[in-house]
């Protein structure tokens, strides 16, 4: 399978950003962004979707952590 071209990459990133923006506006409620989710899935290779989903989780965590809002769970703190 050939790697996506620059045009395809940009289309994928664009669809990803739209979907992420929707998640931002709907407090991470994916059920309100189904349309954008399917456009994201059809614009990017499957492997990239997995990667970007993980990346968003990480970026959200980082944002929280840097804002000082992250509280380690009790089990984590005690272990």
């Amino acid at each position: 399978m050939a790697a996506p071209s620059m045009k395809e990459r940009q289309a994928c990133w664009g669809a990803r950003d739209e979907y992420w923006k929707c998640l931002d506006e709907n407090t991470e409620d994916a059920s309100k962004c189904k349309k954008l989710r399917s456009s994201f899935e059809s614009s990017c290779p499957q492997q990239w979707i997995k990667y970007f989903d993980k990346r968003r989780d990480y970026l959200k965590f980082k944002e929280k952590f840097e804002a000082g809002e992250f509280q380690p769970s009790k089990t984590t703190a005690e272990s």
Partner: peptide, 8 residues
């Protein structure tokens, strides 16, 4: 690798 033989 996934079903498409794609990997990161």
């Amino acid at each position: 690798k996934d079903e498409d033989q794609d990997y990161i």
